[in-house]
Design a protein around this nucleic acid. Structure first.
Lengths: 380, 380
DNA sequence: TGCACTTTGGCAACAGCGTTGCTTAAGTGG
DNA sequence: CCACTTAAGCAACGCTGTTGCCAAAGTGCA
């Protein structure tokens, strides 16, 4: 009786099944990239029969989402036909609303950016103004690929927010946005579906789909603050209220120095203080200790570092974090085989990840259950 | 190309769809308990049409898994027929192998124990001996409900292990078990399917299904050591190598006192040291700080405490942990509305949770994807 | 008491899914 | 040139949930 509320209705009928399997095939096509993938490999990857894959791919080709891409060398019989995703069949817009700037990007189905816009932005300005700027950026980008369907707009924002409702909370430093229904407002302005998420989650999603291996991982963003994006089981973990990933204010030093949040011994405070006094080794060690805690708690495969502070000296941070994790693993603790890397690419991955928020359902990554029994609106 | 390995083949065909929907209905029937649930409520809960629910429940009734249970009062028309789960249609065995004792329980489909056995056990004894004791306990319990199908045996064990392979790792204090394929060995002995998991995960699963509300939560077990079981998105989070939940050796005090694991400032060391010197308030504060970290990182709804050390003074621990979380929430951090409770029931929930490891797939909770394309063995 | 109305739930027909059995296409190798 | 191998489509099929319709079983007012 109580669980019926906590679990979304997940009954599956035939259209939902069809959509699910098609998304699965599309996901494999995307992962295969430009080199493509054969029908039999798709069958193996999905667990479906080759005949079912043939039917599904035939539909995808009819819809213009897939196309043939040559033949494999024969292995003694008829050579396999290679299929590939048609990346420019559909597009999505990614928007990164930061404290001082706006980055907008139009990506194709493969996630590759085909147009990028950056502009200064004052998050402290009236909502109408910010909204207008954002809507303008979306309109300009859509003009880059006229007559091609744009699936929607993904928006990445710094502060706390609710991914489900698309409502902002107290964006740090900009209390005016508290309770603002950004998703609904932007959807009305643009006439497109809008998805809202935290910037760290968008970055994590971009990394999860960015080719650099699968597995569970944590993206740790160290800029003026410290936050995390978690990918567990191949999906972004947001928690019930999109609050997951509050990494900066984890206590790492009981009764430690006071932090801006009012707590004591927060990772963020310790890390930034060390960085401020020039002790980058200590900053990396603090970050690494927090990362090692996370690795042990969630049993993740990799840690990815990003943000301006890390970018200032990537090597030092990677080595420092890696050292702490490896030391703990060597003692018999968790963390053996965990890789530590940097995200690279500056802030653009955030905007691209925001666009992936829109693309994810197409490939069956998230938001699947919302479609059951609903009719999709078709917008041109 | 790389993602095909990280993601299990999830293609869905018609038998899989049928099983999925039937499991969904069974889950709602279980949640409804003895008071039952009507077809229309099932339809609303699953998102399927009433007619589909009628077909599915008809099959369940034929299989003896569901039965009628009276009528609802009429609301102006034909009264609804109430359906309920038939709990004693099938059973499952739960085994809790602890360092010094063995608890075995036979539960029905509703998760209620119908027979319990406890016996002393020496985990340091030869594997043959431990295995024989476990198999005997299983045989004795099965005799309690003869001629009724037993779905399998769930086994909860303290140390690190691999849930997927069913292989033990270095069980703390008992290095001999390292690499022992307990699942396969016990499956051969008993002739039943066996599922292996950590004791904290089993306890968490029992709590997740134990009626006390849904939502994501963490079970923190403080006994001779400190571990955690995480339930995220309604399912137990194990991580890729079943390593998730290593909570005791999270660093909470940089350069703090040395821990038995070789690290410094581990929660476990700080907490148990405070407890040893009689400072229970400090022990609770340490535990609460770790819990607050976890609440912020994962955005969970509740924290459940358990274990012998907590049981010695439940009030002190609950109040202490709650105080830390509420203080952080009051400052504007995460944790508003998070409840802190104790598990209660001593160690028996672990054995019951172990049995739930076997029942979970029946209700579509976990291990769904393994069934696609495979034929289930039927054992009587 | 009887009739109108509401609500439940099953029967029958149906569209559409992946599967199976078979055929055709398109290569390699002796 | 022929035997063999492998890939991929066609047709028939079983089974899914859905739809349209109707019987069953109540309530409530005349």
């Amino acid at each position: 009786m109580n669980r019926s509320r906590t679990r979304a209705p997940a009954g599956v009928n035939l259209p939902a099944l069809r959509h699910h399997n098609a998304a699965l095939v599309l996901d494999l096509l995307r992962a295969a990239g430009a080199e493509g993938i054969s029908r039999l490999e798709l069958a193996e990857g999905t667990g479906l029969t080759p005949q079912a894959v043939s039917k599904i791919t035939a539909r995808l080709r009819e819809d213009g989402l897939a196309a043939g891409a040559g033949l494999r060398p024969s292995t003694g019989g008829k050579p396999r036909t290679v299929l590939r995703l048609v990346p420019d069949a559909q597009f999505a817009v990614g928007l990164h609303l930061d404290r001082d700037g706006l980055t907008a990007v139009l990506v194709d189905l493969a996630g590759r950016p085909v147009a990028v816009t950056t502009a200064p932005l004052d998050l402290g300005a009236p909502a109408e103004r910010v909204l207008a700027d954002a809507a303008d950026a979306v309109r300009d980008l859509c003009a880059a690929e006229p007559h091609k369907p744009v699936l929607g707009v993904g928006v990445a924002v710094p502060g706390p927010l609710d991914h489900r409702d698309g409502v902002l909370h107290r964006v740090t430093g900009f209390p005016r946005w508290d309770g603002y229904p950004l998703r609904a407002a932007l959807a009305e302005r643009t006439g497109l579906p809008v998805v809202l998420d935290k910037d760290t989650n968008a970055a994590a999603l971009a990394l999860a789909l960015g080719g650099a291996g699968g597995g569970d991982f944590a993206y740790l963003h160290l800029g003026t603050g410290l936050g995390a994006g978690l990918v567990l089981g191949g999906e972004v973990h947001r928690g019930a209220r999109t609050g997951a990933g509050e990494f900066g204010h984890q206590t790492l030093q009981l009764d430690g120095p006071l932090c801006g949040c009012g707590g004591r011994g927060c990772i963020e405070a310790l890390c930034l203080a060390a960085e401020a006094r020039g002790d980058r080794g200590e900053a990396a060690r603090v970050l690494g200790t927090g990362a090692a805690n996370l690795v042990g708690l969630l049993d993740i495969d990799r840690v990815v570092l990003g943000g301006r502070t890390v970018a200032a000296d990537e090597d030092a941070y990677v080595r420092g974090v890696r050292a702490v994790i490896e030391e703990r693993a060597a003692r018999g603790g968790a963390g053996a085989g965990v890789t530590v890397t940097v995200a690279g690419g500056g802030d653009r991955p955030v905007a691209e990840g925001a666009a992936q928020l829109v693309l994810a359902p197409v490939f069956g990554r998230i938001g699947e259950e919302k479609r059951v029994g609903e009719e999709k609106e078709d917008r041109g």
